[in-house]
Design a protein around this nucleic acid. Structure first.
Length: 272
DNA sequence: CCCGATTCCTGTAGGC
DNA sequence: TGCCTACAGGAATCGG
């Protein structure tokens, strides 16, 4: 499931094939995505020239000379750059035909993903306007996390998965970062010390950077722009390892449901 | 404001 | 073998 590292890997994969290209044709096969694709979308996008591809949180922003195409991969979405003539698969919802002859194809079985056309300033879009800082950017550190956690009783794992606090941290990397920082996922955010918050911020940055370096995590569906999986799965310490031995201390990894999400932790390495 | 619950969707896995 | 159910989850939205 695409979190920040998978989205960033996708961005790096598609950007060289898109930048400078004119979008010749837009084909929509399924409009019922997370937000329905409006009529007229095709006409707005066709004919645009791509300036570059950015990422904000888990959104991909394709900048063009007329506006910005914003794409979210949801939990099962993928974007691939394909040579002409590649056969359609189930859930291939959108194609952008490029002047190179290749095609950017959006596939999303569960349709939690979305595609928006933004005519104006992307930063002002309602889905982007209230987002917290980028975890790999200059505005994110332990002191920031600690100050935002004042008066918050919510569990620290829920807290760091809140995009208004910090973006891009999903279920996998939240569990992994909390393991590295030695913090129990259920600890109230306000009870995490400033020193621990600094460790947590460092752990979040490190786990995301390491995952990006190996192309992200593939559990089931995720593939990058070239159709290949990511390899961070073999570096996971706790996620989906319930009952298995902790790689640091050997104790069995525990599993809980927290905020309707699976959470994993080591009861020894992550003391209450 | 804060926080927990609900909702969207479909492929997969497990039980019988 | 086949049917049914539970589960996976990003994030908006709603209700308390």
């Amino acid at each position: 499931m695409p979190e920040l590292p998978e989205v960033e890997t996708t961005r790096r994969g598609i950007a060289p094939s898109l930048t400078g290209q004119r979008i010749l044709q837009v084909t929509v096969r399924e409009r019922r995505l997370r937000w329905p694709l409006p009529r007229g979308f095709e006409a707005q996008v066709a004919g645009c020239r791509v300036g570059g591809v950015r990422r904000r949180a888990k959104y991909l922003l394709v900048d063009t000379d007329r506006g910005t195409l914003m794409i979210h991969l949801g939990m099962s979405g993928s974007l691939r750059v394909l040579d002409p003539g590649v056969a359609l698969l189930a859930h291939d919802h959108l194609d952008l035909l490029l002047e190179s002859g290749r095609c950017l194809r959006f596939n999303d079985p569960r349709r939690f993903g979305s595609v928006h056309w933004i005519a104006g300033d992307p930063a002002a879009h309602p889905l982007l306007a209230d987002l917290g800082p980028e975890p790999l950017g200059p505005d994110f550190d332990g002191d920031y996390l600690w100050s935002r956690a004042r008066g918050r009783s919510v569990a620290i794992k829920i807290f760091i998965m809140n995009a208004a606090i910090v973006v891009g941290v999903g279920n996998i990397y939240a569990s992994e970062a909390l393991f590295r920082a030695g913090i129990r996922p259920g600890t109230p955010a306000s009870r995490v010390s400033r020193a621990r918050m600094r460790q947590l911020a460092t752990a979040i940055r490190e786990v995301l950077a390491e995952a990006i370096a190996v192309g992200g995590t593939t559990l089931r569906d995720y593939v990058n722009a070239h159709g290949t999986p990511g390899y961070f799965r073999q570096q996971l310490f706790v996620y989906e390892r319930a009952g298995e031995a902790c790689r640091r201390c050997g104790c069995p990894i525990q599993h809980r449901v927290q905020g309707q999400r699976s959470t994993y932790f080591c009861p020894v390495c992550q003391r209450p």
